[in-house]
Nucleic acid binder design. Structure first.
Lengths: 227, 227
DNA sequence: ACCTGAACACCGTTCAAGT
DNA sequence: ACCTGAACACCGTTCAAGT
């Protein structure tokens, strides 16, 4: 857009034919928008403007916005590397799920995208591969490992999806305020445990409590089968 | 719109001043659209057309589309009655969660709406009230009950969110196809357990397996605390 | 060959005018 | 007082024209 002065390259053809954009550049720009302003802020026009390109140029790389969203998921998932997996199966599952939770927390919009369209792309399936491997090695049979992984995946995913978009403290205050507005006779248990209920709507302690209960449940199932 | 002939009411004032619409009528019409065509099909213009009213009339009852969505959630949640709660705490929690799962399955769009905006409305909080009551009575302390309910809620919600929008069989076929397309050396555990992995992505058996593991985990925590 | 402005068929919502 | 058409500032995407 602005006149550029390239001192090191004085070629006969037009100075900068608009540096060709790659699909990766586009996906990165889209991910940045989505992380900063949420999934509703992601429009083709805005992505194009962010990389200083005509809107229609994006359609040379992606057939539709949906396909661009797939690429955004890939970009975000690929960025989160799997953790080192050592120790007991329980240690390994814990590490894997915490890594997934961290990655989803870093890219909250992933969850919303995931809901609109199931993600069965190679990058995302690495997570399933790792989980199935741990559970099979631990002694779960094929069906149990599959269901067990699904349980863990569902929890991690649901937790991220339910995580407040505002700050956690604000969300807790809102929850407490909502409970305070209820008739206490009709909602005695919420009224009595309002602070704890509001505290548990998110955060690391809540995540870990749930994860450990699930691991307890899987472990007791494994032991019951062994005897 | 069309000229109507009202034989039974020949009043001096205009024949049918456009029967006044209530917020409930609007929310019901919106819920019907959302259940039939998904949340992306829900537009103010379409809701208005469905009840044969000018688009702007809706804004006489709801300040914004977001507020209308809140009312849609209320309408859907209010329709699903809480089940009778009898038996052990485990029986009661199971019944409650299965009812919630059934209700979310009946209104898949609820999950998407819920992700966009936390739902802290009285109707929705009845579910939390019931859950907290059961867990407190079972002997969990305030903090444990809150975290335990959050775990259960997260699971039920996540399960519904991850449930395929297409038919379950189609989704399973797609998952199996995606795994078949992966390099087996890099994804050995998915390749070996492809059938079970695809089976576990949804359905009653998968839901129940996860729920029972969570209940196992909560129960072992309760017993450990008792000793 | 590659890029892209104009245009089309939609949105949610404001505003001013209808009755 | 209640209702609502026109208009505004947006969308995703098609199409035809630019280079």
């Amino acid at each position: 857009m602005q006149p550029t002065t390239l001192t090191h390259a004085a070629r006969p053809r037009p100075p900068q034919r608009r540096s060709r954009v790659s699909p990766e550049q586009i996906a990165d720009a889209a991910l940045k928008i989505v992380d900063r302003d949420g999934v509703t802020a992601l429009t083709m026009r805005r992505v194009a403007a962010a990389i200083d390109v005509g809107t229609m140029t994006l359609y040379g790389h992606f057939r539709s916005k949906e396909q661009l969203l797939d690429a955004v998921v890939d970009a975000a998932v690929g960025r989160g590397k799997l953790p080192a997996l050592t120790g007991s199966w329980r240690d390994q599952v814990r590490a894997l799920m915490r890594a997934a939770n961290r990655n989803l927390a870093a890219h909250p919009a992933l969850v919303q995208i995931r809901f609109a369209q199931p993600v069965l792309r190679p990058e995302a399936l690495r997570f399933g591969e790792a989980g199935m491997g741990i559970l099979r090695s631990a002694g779960f049979n094929s069906r149990e490992a599959a269901h067990g992984f699904r349980l863990l995946f569902t929890y991690v995913f649901g937790f991220a999806g339910l995580s407040p978009t505002a700050t956690l403290d604000d969300a807790r205050r809102e929850a407490a305020a909502a409970i305070a507005g209820l008739p206490a006779e009709e909602y005695p248990n919420l009224a009595e445990n309002s602070a704890e209920f509001s505290e548990a709507i998110g955060g690391g302690a809540a995540f870990n409590y749930g994860l450990e209960r699930i691991l307890d449940g899987l472990e007791s199932h494994l032991k019951a089968r062994a005897t």
